[in-house]
Amino acid sequence: MPNPIVTVQNLSVEVKQTGAKIVRNVSFSVEPESVTALVGGSGSGKTTTGMSILKLLSPALKVSSGQILYKGFNLSAFSESKMQEIRGREIGVVFQEPLYAFNPVFTIGDQIDEVLRFHTQQGVIQRKEKILHLFDLVGLPDPARIYMSYPHQLSGGMRQRAMIAQAIAADPDLIIADEPTSSLDVTLQAKIIELFHDLRSKLKLSIVLVSHDLGLVKHLSDQVIVMKQGEVVEAGKTNTVIEKPQEEYTKDLLKAVEVK
């Protein structure tokens, strides 16, 4: 068994002012080239858990106990500039709504170029080639046009693909996908999940998939961690959890999908 990429140990996050716990005693580990799904309803702390891997919690929150090991190193010991090297370069993030996650005043190509400029020593031409190749990889048609487009000029699905291209631009080992399909319609959701599946084997990626939709993640994930109100209620191999859910909450989540 190779060493896990990320190990979260007894992580607790609280609101600085009130001391209210947002995340309580969460533990899990992400194996290389595996997909971990963090599933739960709104406010279950799944996004907060995902963001704490990048040490990008909102300023109102803080980690109150527990630790996160990244490739065996304790993240809390890393300086901010060390974290800036890791963000984007080793851990990429895909957001829920790419319309807001792209800056509206710059072109898509320019914004992906920004990542490469910061994390690599490649020249202008090399970077552009790489970006066009990335567009190809994530299944965007007419890469040259996408490169020159502003975010509002693309459709939702194309924007999400562009967002994924940005996340994988600097060849990270881990992708944190925060509800990557929630803003898309059902047919597109399946295609994006398929794309993740594809990229994972092509690029040897590990993925942390944050979602509220158990039905969607079951095709992609190796392990599922079900969260409710900041606590892990159930965790295990995806098949086990889906087929033999132990907890009421997990069953509810599964039912919600069936109704849909």
Binding site: L56, R87, E114, F118, Q166
Partner: peptide, 8 residues
């Protein structure tokens, strides 16, 4: 936030 996650 997205720019932060890119390490800028």
């Amino acid at each position: 936030l997205a720019a932060k996650t890119l390490g800028l």
